[in-house]
Design a protein around this nucleic acid. Structure first.
Lengths: 233, 233
DNA sequence: TAGTGGTCTAGACCACTCA
DNA sequence: GAGTGGTCTAGACCACTAT
């Protein structure tokens, strides 16, 4: 084994650890050496080992507990990460021209499901928007959104000119939320808008977003047939 | 402003930075102070600031470039992370009993689409598996998989007893791959297996996985109606 | 209580890239 | 060339937890 004169970086340490995991040198469930020992063995500082192993633990390869030490995960839970850009950028990054049409805007009592989701009182009045996003003039995505009218500035926004999606990104700092992907069959109205057959299988994403404890919006994005969400792991 | 005597941790620094971003104290696109200045201002070491800001950059809030400094992202690209557990665990974590039935197993030339995806020669013989996963005896997920027969040990595996999904996790170290979510309409055969109406909208995930440059498997997981992939951002 | 990972520090050098 | 982030080091203390 040639001695590696240049100092080891954390990426090297991580690669070496991954190699040992994959080669079953450190089999699933096994306790691996502690950070201090590894640092000595590899000839680097403990902080470097820590950085490498911490990242592996976050990625699901290792399970670490103080005093108990570090174990190789038995069933590594892989994680897939999806980027959620604003819709216009999503379209433009595919080299297509983004178009946008506001279909309707109204103030209406939120349906029970939406109100519950946002933890608002039963029939609280909210802003209801429906809009169609286009890619090269073809239907891309239907946006069905309920907006909390208490958001500063929201009543003055012109959603015919700028989509709520984009307005929110630029004007409302949000802290969190959740997303659910699911499949649904196109109802007749949606099918007409999407230029597809009624009953066609469509991919949809339901999102709710919050600024701290204040509900911002609940939106369903229904994508045109054939669309896929792709990622690399 | 009360002086915070206890030393600031990186999480505190991160929270303070996020606060400044959200309050528009650091508006979108703005250059923020460099690490050394921030460390002085906040009374901690530069490494602590680095840890905090590095994480914010990974999360999409900041854009960092050497010499150019750190800027607040103009359109923060939020990222959603999905855990991809093995199917049995997924079912069990919902408090249901996992069942499994191997429907068919055969060696057959891979369809052109699959072979291309895995960069294998046109009609390369592969192992084709079809299996149904059950949750509390109800259809949960249909697994349609093509396996590279060159994988060590694969020809001796008993996929009637242990799903390929689980066998692979335990026996084949894989380095990467990709996933695509999409919606499809249930064909008659699938509908019969899934106990749903033909044409029903189903959520599906297509995965390919690799061990370094060696293709391992291509699989389509088709989920029973009503299933959702949920995550928090 | 003792062993382990989690974190902070002060300093240093390097890599990148803007001007 | 010079300013910035990226990383490493050696040492220290702390927080958690298995025993």
């Amino acid at each position: 084994m040639p001695s590696d004169a240049p100092t080891l970086g954390w990426q090297d340490v991580q690669a070496e650890a991954l190699r040992r995991i994959r080669s079953r040198d450190w089999p699933p469930g096994a306790l691996i050496p502690n950070e201090a020992d590894l640092a000595r063995e590899l000839g680097c500082a403990r902080a470097t080992v820590n950085r490498a192993l911490r990242d592996l633990a976050e990625a699901g390869w290792l399970e670490r507990r103080r005093k108990a030490g570090t174990r190789v995960a038995v069933a590594p839970v892989r994680k897939a990460t999806f980027a959620i850009p604003i819709i216009r950028r999503d379209v433009e990054e595919r080299g297509q021209r983004h178009g946008y049409r506001l279909l309707s805007q109204a103030v209406a009592p939120a349906p029970a499901g939406i109100a519950t989701l946002l933890r608002l009182p039963g029939a609280a009045p909210m802003i209801h928007l429906r809009a169609l996003h286009l890619a090269d003039d073809r239907p891309w995505c239907l946006e069905d959104r309920w907006l909390n009218p208490a958001i500063p500035g929201v009543t003055g926004a012109d959603f015919a000119a700028l989509s709520a999606n984009e307005w929110l990104v630029g004007n409302v700092p949000f802290s969190g939320g959740d997303i659910a992907f699911h499949a649904l069959a196109a109802d007749p109205a949606t099918a007409a808008l999407m230029d597809c057959a009624p009953g066609a299988a469509l991919l949809a994403a339901d999102r709710t977003t919050w600024a701290e404890a204040v509900p911002i919006t609940a939106v369903r994005l229904t994508y045109a047939p054939g669309q896929r969400f792709v990622t690399t792991i």
